[in-house]
Design a protein around this nucleic acid. Structure first.
Lengths: 366, 366
DNA sequence: ATGAAAGCGCTAACAA
DNA sequence: TTGTTAGCGCTTTCAT
């Protein structure tokens, strides 16, 4: 016997399917409050209130409504609700890059909080491009998000595109890469202190000449780290100059630069790497040159890479509280979205980084 | 003279600010089509059509409308438009983890395509938790997204939560971690072939006994890689058994397991690591045991880590086309959202992985 | 305790 | 070429 399938679709005025029958069985029905109301002989208002557990509605009615709603898999239409209430239960996250362990962990933190609080997370990547950042903010400023978390690009120097969110009543919070001149809350880590601490640690381990390796950039966080490094040296009466800082431009061959540094006459006996990706080059260059770590060269690196402990020798790191930064920023944002039209203050939350001492800095074996 | 600031806000019925005056200057006005229409003595319809460059509207009118719109920074209200059209210009991405270089690159690929096509990207993380995946899909099924890109958790074995999207007319596409039984397009890489190729490569380099190292899991992609490995051995008349596969459970100390393997009587002379994070342990264990790579042990690893080339010796990798997978999946999704109610076919797009031969597998010096 | 009516801002069918 | 009208699905007064 041949199988005959009859499918009937009923569309609404917009051309959207409302009911689909397949062989007389209702396959899908776009369940709205209206439909629930009709089936129960109630008004839309009552159903709406019942589902939101209003005190105005009697218990038996609520019961009936809830039952039917779950039976028909009712889910409120997000657009309609948002249009009416002006809220979207969505927070926007704008950041330079997601293929970076630090930012990835921040996103995890944000997402965990958002999920718990019932918020959705829209993510936009700037790829360190200021124009793209501007474009994105323009694009999401109206109606898509209830709040914004942002970590600016290295290029960002003016903040017009960010301050525009205030009049829209969309709270903004900076995380990690903030702009001092914008009066919104900021969640950052203690870059000055952590680098001061790292420097002091190397000095305590016996280093006489410590170099900094970084990628050239304009970020406040880099400047603060450098300042912390210089301050620590000064406090120990060691002259510090710009020539002790190695800027490895991203497009250059950073390995060669590091190799040359370690090969030179006055090579350092201590290195602080401000970025993760310069760590491996230091290890390999040292091995090539027969320099032992931590014997002849001590190393500390900013890193959130879980393989730090497994390197040989294990790597002393300054590890940033990425997950907590994300969590904290998200919590602050969500609570400031709750308070109606109360612009939150220009407060800075500092979550300290951890100096995790392992073998590469010489105070611990293995 | 004291500075007096007078701020007047006018709210609409919902309690939202419509106009804000500060000292008689309009600071903000929630610009809608209605406001544009009133100021220009036109109807809302005309303005709407003009802004969408309709052929029905005269050029001078369009001109006027556009001018005022940009002058007042008009942006259409996304909720209202979505409610009316049933489209949100948003695609949802559900995946296990973002702090994983592979997935991070996939997201970059998706985002690049979405951005170009004018789509927003909602990201949800499952953290390998099936229940969370189910919850998330339930949560976004109504009205938030126009299309879904998903890579399932290791735990996911049933697909009810995914098939529910078809009747909502929301196209779904799998990327990387797909489910064979669900009839939607899939974008994957050639796991069987790539592992076959890696195995053959090691055999060609002179290996007699090749072991596989992986984390125990149920993913199809892992099974396919293992199958490819076994097939290659068979094709070379080498017996292959499960005992040549080392399962490093995530919670165990994988380093110790690898160390013991390399220390044992019948240690392998070739290793294929199916996951990035087992690479460094192999390097370190070899060094501890005085085994030279590639002399006594040849190594290939699945990895998207950019530092593969910088390891010593440089690491031969199977690198997955993560970015392209993201791009392709997003393109397919967007094109299938364009075609009205035409369910796309159950097609599988395979984007091949690359075997990047470097020093660790012995066919290349340096 | 329940319901009628208005309207969020937009688009689309249908006049004029 | 422009305007009138209706309505997407929901929440929120304000009756009843």
């Amino acid at each position: 016997m041949p199988y005959i399938k009859i499918k009937i679709c009923i569309f609404n005025s917009t051309g959207f399917p409302v009911i689909i029958y397949v062989n007389d069985k209702v396959l899908m029905e776009n369940v709205t409050l209206r439909i629930l109301a009709d089936k129960l002989n109630l008004s839309v208002t009552t159903v709406s209130k019942a589902l939101r557990d209003s005190y105005e509605i009697s218990e038996p009615t609520k019961q009936k409504v809830r039952e039917l709603a779950t039976a028909l898999h009712y889910t409120p239409n997000a657009y309609a609700r948002s249009l009416r209430t002006g809220k979207s239960e969505t927070i926007g996250v704008v950041l330079p890059e997601v293929a970076d362990h630090f930012f990835a962990l921040v996103i995890n933190g944000i997402e965990s909080v958002a999920k718990t609080a019932g918020y959705h997370v829209l993510i936009y990547l700037t790829h360190e491009d200021y124009n793209r950042e501007k474009e994105i903010l323009e694009y999401i400023r109206k109606g898509r998000i209830d709040g914004l978390l942002i970590s600016v690009t290295k290029e960002t120097t003016v903040a017009d595109h960010i301050t525009k969110f205030a009049p829209e009543n969309i709270p903004v919070i900076f995380f990690d890469r903030m702009m001092e001149q914008v009066e919104v809350p900021k969640v950052v880590t203690n870059d000055f202190e952590s680098c001061y601490q790292a420097t002091q640690h190397l000095l305590d381990s016996g280093c006489k000449q410590i170099n900094l390796c970084t990628i050239s950039d304009n970020l406040i966080i880099s400047k603060q780290r450098i300042a912390g490094y210089i301050k620590a040296l000064q406090d120990n009466n060691i002259p510090a100059g710009k020539d002790n800082i190695l800027f490895c431009r991203e497009d250059d061959n950073s390995y060669t630069q590091i190799y040359n540094l370690l090969k030179s006459e006055n090579r350092p006996d201590g290195i602080i790497s401000l970025v993760d990706k310069l760590t491996l080059p230091v290890y390999i260059a040292s091995e090539k040159l027969g320099l032992t770590i931590p014997g002849e060269l001590k190393l500390v690196s900013y890193s959130n890479n879980p393989s730090a402990g497994i390197l040989n020798p294990s790597l002393t790191t300054v590890s940033q509280p990425a997950f907590q930064i994300g969590q904290t920023a998200a919590k602050l944002l969500i609570s400031s979205m709750g308070s109606k039209r109360n612009q939150v203050l220009n407060e800075v939350t500092v979550i300290p980084s951890n100096l995790v001492i392992r073998a590469s800095s010489g105070q611990k074996t293995n």
